[in-house]
């Protein structure tokens, strides 16, 4: 905890206001950055900002959104969850295996979400009850989930279930748009999105409501702001921590489902390093890594930013994959230094 706890003893209302502004200014920075990146993309590559490409920024990264949402809860509470990528893979593997064994799709969906939630609850209990650092407890969960994946299967399993395929292939038409192709011909096409995107955005709305309009949500912020203070205020710190990791587990399970919709398979080595992507999305979205301040919508912006970086790679086949990683690392660096500057200004009052 000591590495992630950022406590503000004696923080005054004025500084709290400044803190709020600091949070907004970071989200604003993200918006500006995203706009710049999209503009750069549009000047470099044709159709980079075509309506469909913009919608696809979400569509191709829909499974990252639940991970980022879950991670937002955890980071807001002052913790970290390294297990999300592995739990996502476990979700997709369980879905594929159970479907192969003839389970019905709804039962499989419930089973996957339950697995994620139970795992998260276990991790949260270990963290809060035995005061084991979130970092190391979720590391164990990561090993466990990845290990279970590999015990269940060591190769990717194809999903043939009707409902899963339907969700995978469904196109929800949003509106019509004019698109100019490479040869300069203009035609009208339907811009579509997928059910996965709607599920992910639905989750974001629920998360927003929970964080800002419920007692639990305010407790999450309070615990992240200062755990001792929250405890002295009589807030149920331990229960909140367990809940936060349970939510993250649930989200990782959901993301496993979205991933299996998207790839129509369960892959035991999927999502290696996705915990980093989720953390990066949250940081880029302006959430304070020490907890207590941040917005779930910021994390969605973070996912969009990552999506834009991946889109660069997609539009430019010659681009070395290494550059996408360097760019993501650079952005994370930029935002943590920014957080540091804002935090130190807040301390200086």
């Amino acid at each position: 905890m000591s590495t992630t706890a950022d406590t503000h003893p004696g923080r005054r209302p004025l500084s709290r206001v400044l803190g709020r502004l600091g949070g907004y200014s970071q989200v604003a920075t993200t918006v500006v950055l995203l706009a710049i990146m999209l503009t750069v993309g549009a000047t470099l590559y044709q159709n980079f900002t075509s309506p469909q490409a913009l919608v696809d920024l979400l569509g191709k990264n829909a499974f990252l959104i639940p991970l980022a949402v879950g991670m937002t809860f955890v980071i807001l509470s002052g913790g970290i969850d390294l297990s999300v990528g592995a739990v996502m893979a476990l979700g997709s593997v369980i879905a594929a295996t159970l479907l192969q064994q003839g389970w019905s799709a709804p039962a499989v969906i419930v089973a996957v979400l339950l697995t994620g939630t139970v795992l998260g609850t276990l991790v949260g209990t270990v963290i809060s009850k035995f005061e084991i650092q979130p970092f190391i407890a979720t590391l164990a969960a990561m090993f466990l989930a990845r290990g279970l994946c590999l015990v269940i299967t060591d190769r990717s399993i194809t999903i043939k279930d009707a409902l899963f395929r339907k969700v995978n292939l469904a196109h929800l038409n949003l509106f019509e748009a004019q698109v100019t192709n490479v040869r300069g011909r203009t035609r009208t096409v339907d811009v579509y999105t997928t059910p996965s995107v709607l599920i992910a955005l639905g989750l974001v709305l629920v998360a927003f409501a929970v964080l800002h309009y419920t007692h639990f949500g305010r407790t999450v912020y309070a615990v992240g702001g200062s755990e001792p203070s929250a405890s002295l205020m009589g807030l149920a710190v331990d229960r909140t921590k367990v809940m936060v990791y349970a939510i993250s587990g649930f989200c990782a399970g959901l993301s496993g489902l979205l991933f299996s919709f998207y790839t129509a398979s369960g892959d035991p080595v999927a999502g290696i390093g996705y915990e980093l992507n989720a953390i990066a999305a949250v940081v880029i979205g302006g959430t304070l890594l020490s907890g207590g301040a941040g917005y779930v919508f910021g994390s969605v912006l973070g996912v969009l930013t990552l999506g834009t970086i991946y889109a660069y790679k997609e539009f430019d086949g010659n681009l070395n994959t290494g550059w996408t990683r360097i760019l993501i690392g650079g952005l994370v660096l930029f935002f943590i230094v920014l957080q540091r500057v804002i935090a130190s200004r807040r301390w200086a009052r």
């Binding site: 992630t4 940081v283 890594l289 290494g322 550059w323 990683r325 760019l327």
Partner: peptide
Amino acid sequence: QPIVATLVLMTAGRGLAQV
């Protein structure tokens, strides 16, 4: 924080190796 600071290179470093 060390976790965060070294996370940067953890992500970018492997990218650098690829480059």
